[in-house]
Nucleic acid binder design. Structure first.
Lengths: 167, 167
DNA sequence: CAAGATTGCGCAATCG
DNA sequence: CCGATTGCGCAATCTT
């Protein structure tokens, strides 16, 4: 709705292709070419013939399916542009998606590393706690040696409550 | 390496298209159709003309570019199959990639959640430690305390929920 | 109903 | 030489 145009119109040039199918079944084909030959059946479904009501579409002289028509050519070209655009986009999107995958993979690795680290820290702290617990259980007795690495837990505190402040 | 063939030869049927370009520039085009017309210029680059040595390629009667040739038709069909296959694959891959993105995104979220949880656990434990440190500092002297049942150091359980071990 | 966007398809040129 | 890719145009549809 708001984007279009802008383009060098490479359109048909360097390429100059020509294509034709082998088993045409319908549609009027028209070899308007450069080889030199030209043959235009000019077949147009003029009237329903036998029994139809009427042909709603007003003028159907060349209407569609007429390879000679300017209109036709014009529309073809427009469509060709549209197609090119659409394909470009499509390809781009695919690429972007692929990149997204890479980014996500990277981030994943980062996160996993972080988890590993946190886990390790946690386990260390927990071990410390366990150790203390043991100490407590063990040393129900008086503090024998002074320099021992133990006993952080000397507290029987009557702490009312923990002043934990969130991060 | 092990997939191919198998197919009802839909080839040209329900479709029956016929196409031709407008500005042929090169290549010998040959409208071999069904509409009823046929014209085969039969142009073949017979001799290099001016100064070539010789034409290595053995027989080049119809060689390539002959739309009538069986050989040609056969090759076209083969190529058409190849093209179809290739495109299918391509599309499939794109789809897979997209799915991969989704999976990765999900996993990412999971990981992040886990990180959050671990972080919280960690902060709790750290706070406990800090508290103990304070207590230690505070009551450097009164080793004895009478009757407070509030003993955090009793590490029995608090809320430690970390029994996760899946994935 | 028209105009652009998509999609399937065939051709041809290239690449491996 | 052959299959796989890729760019391109046509035409039928789908969307807007």
């Amino acid at each position: 709705m708001s984007k279009q145009l802008q383009q060098k119109i490479s359109s048909t040039d360097q390429n100059g292709v020509s294509v034709i199918q082998n088993q045409p079944h319908n549609s009027a084909l028209n070899p308007a070419g450069a080889a030199g030959l030209q043959q235009v059946p000019q077949l147009v479904p003029v009237s329903p013939g036998g029994g139809g009501k009427a042909i709603p579409p007003s003028k159907m002289k060349k209407s569609i399916a007429d390879k000679n028509s300017d209109e036709y050519r014009q529309r073809r070209e427009r469509n060709n542009l549209a197609v090119k655009k659409s394909r470009m986009r499509s390809k781009q999107k695919a690429q972007d998606t692929q990149q997204r995958v890479n980014e996500l993979k990277e981030e994943n690795e980062r996160l996993e590393a972080k988890i590993k680290l946190l886990s390790k820290e946690l386990s260390v702290l927990k071990d410390l706690f366990l150790e203390h617990a043991h100490n407590l259980a063990d040393n129900v007795q008086p503090p024998a040696s002074g320099g021992g690495p133990g006993d952080l837990c000397n507290n029987n505190n009557n702490n009312n409550n923990s002043g934990n402040s969130s991060q």
